[in-house]
């Protein structure tokens, strides 16, 4: 027979572990809190449209991940999406005339922010804004434009 005290301690640990597991499920698996790794600096980019970009999505240069999307909000005067990009601290030499665009990984994949570095000698510092941005492509709009341009061309002469 195991001693009562041992049993009580074991049950206490068990209940704590069970509640801890529920807590992990609530916090980490569903989205009660957003977690961020705050080792690095933050850049800001304003997009006309971010599509279905999500907090935590990768930020990459030439396909290499250099940071994550930290926060997505809206600018109250221009009604553009304001995306805060958390860049890892080892990438401090991103040129000031870098362009940012929202792209999609694969056909059905998630959206991410791609940075295309320019040739400026000055580097972006914490809190700077990336001026050149390209919004996410919305498939319906592209199809609409395509149909519209086809219609304008008129019936094809064959």
């Amino acid at each position: 027979m195991v001693q009562t005290r041992t049993i009580e301690v074991a049950v206490g640990l068990f209940v704590a572990a069970g509640l801890g597991a529920l807590f992990v499920l609530a916090m980490k698996v569903s989205n009660l809190t957003a977690f961020t790794d705050d080792t690095g600096y933050q850049l800001v980019a304003k997009f006309e449209n971010v599509g279905s970009l999500k907090v935590g999505a990768p930020v990459s240069i030439a396909g290499v991940r250099v940071g994550r999307v930290g926060n997505i909000g809206i600018d109250h005067t221009t009604h553009e999406a304001v995306v805060k990009l958390n860049i890892n601290k080892e990438y401090t030499d991103i040129p000031a005339d870098t362009a940012a665009s929202v792209l999609t990984a694969g056909l059905l994949g998630e959206q991410y922010v791609a940075l295309e570095p320019g040739g400026d000698i000055k580097a972006l510092r914490a809190g700077d804004e990336i001026k050149l941005t390209q919004p996410a492509l919305v498939l319906e709009k592209i199809i609409g434009q395509f149909l519209f341009s086809k219609a304008q061309e008129g019936p094809s002469k064959k």
């Binding site: 499920l25 698996v29 569903s30 009660l32 957003a34 977690f35 999500k54 935590g56 999505a57 990768p58």
Partner: peptide, 24 residues
């Protein structure tokens, strides 16, 4: 698989009330 996408997609799609509570 990308670390952040794994968690962020999970957090975006898993609902506390609908999924976790129903499981409980």
């Amino acid at each position: 698989v990308d670390d952040g996408s794994f968690w962020s997609q999970m957090q975006a799609k898993v609902n506390l009330q609908e999924d976790i509570m129903n499981g409980v």
